[in-house]
Amino acid sequence: MNDAPTQTPPPSPDEAIDATRTWLERAVIGLNLCPFAKAVQRKGQVRYVVSEATQPLQLHADLVRELELLRDTDPETTDTTLLIHPYVLGDFLDFNEFLEVADDTVADLDLEGEIQVASFHPDFQFEGTAADDITNYTNRSPFPTLHLLREASIDRAVAAFPDASAIFETNMATLDKLGHEGWRRLFVHDSDDTSDL
């Protein structure tokens, strides 16, 4: 009998989008980790796109395309983009290094001050924290994800929020209270028993 662990097959693009949408709705919006996310999600202004890249150079090409598309698209149609890339940069350190490439790409396209790139990863870890620190989960997504944000939208959201600087501390407190089991239960399938959530 073969007791070797079975490897989870890579997700299809549709599965990656479904998991990311669930994470956004249940964690990011559900826990209010980003007070600005609910409005754009409700209005259908979030673009979910899966890069099928298996090499960083391929991902870079997809990033360029998505940055240019966001630049050229009316914010009322697409305010923000989640570029999900399940098949590349699964290692958090490699992903972290690529973020410099992403920032350089924004500059190369003359988009500084217009678009910025935020980062989410299944193994996200803040500097100075242990890998299993629950506060890392504020930036843990189902798959490696580059979040392309319009600077103007961020500015408007921050202006409308009474104390935007307190969001980080509030998120840390929320995750501390939730704990690992509470986080896991956010993603229990709807068909399972969630009556005591």
Rank of each mutant, 00 (worst) to 15 (best):
E112D: 15
L109H: 12
E100S: 14
L99V: 13
D133N: 14
V106Y: 12
F143T: 01
G90M: 04
T105D: 09
I84H: 00
F92G: 03
A152M: 03
L93E: 15
F95V: 05
L82E: 03
H85Q: 05
D132F: 03
E100N: 04
L82F: 11
T138G: 14
G113R: 14
E127P: 00
L83A: 00
V88E: 01
A130V: 04
N139H: 13
P144I: 01
E127I: 08
S153N: 03
D103G: 10
G90N: 02
H147A: 09
N96A: 15
G90S: 10
V106S: 04
H85E: 05
E112P: 13
T138E: 10
T81S: 05
D94K: 14
L93V: 15
F98L: 08
D132H: 07
D108R: 14
I115F: 05
L149R: 09
L83S: 02
D91W: 11
H147T: 08
N139Y: 12
I84F: 03
F120G: 07
I134D: 02
E127G: 09
F126S: 10
A118S: 04
F143G: 00
L109C: 04
G128P: 07
Q125S: 08
D110G: 06
V117G: 04
D103Y: 00
D123R: 14
R150Y: 05
Q125H: 05
F98A: 10
P144H: 03
D132E: 15
D123T: 04
P122I: 10
N136L: 06
D123Q: 06
L109V: 02
S119H: 11
F126N: 11
S119Y: 11
E151I: 14
A107Q: 14
I154D: 00
I154Y: 02
F124T: 10
D94H: 14
E112F: 06
E100K: 14
P142G: 01
V88T: 13
A118E: 07
V117H: 07
G113S: 11
D104Y: 13
N139Q: 11
V88C: 01
V101F: 02
F92N: 06
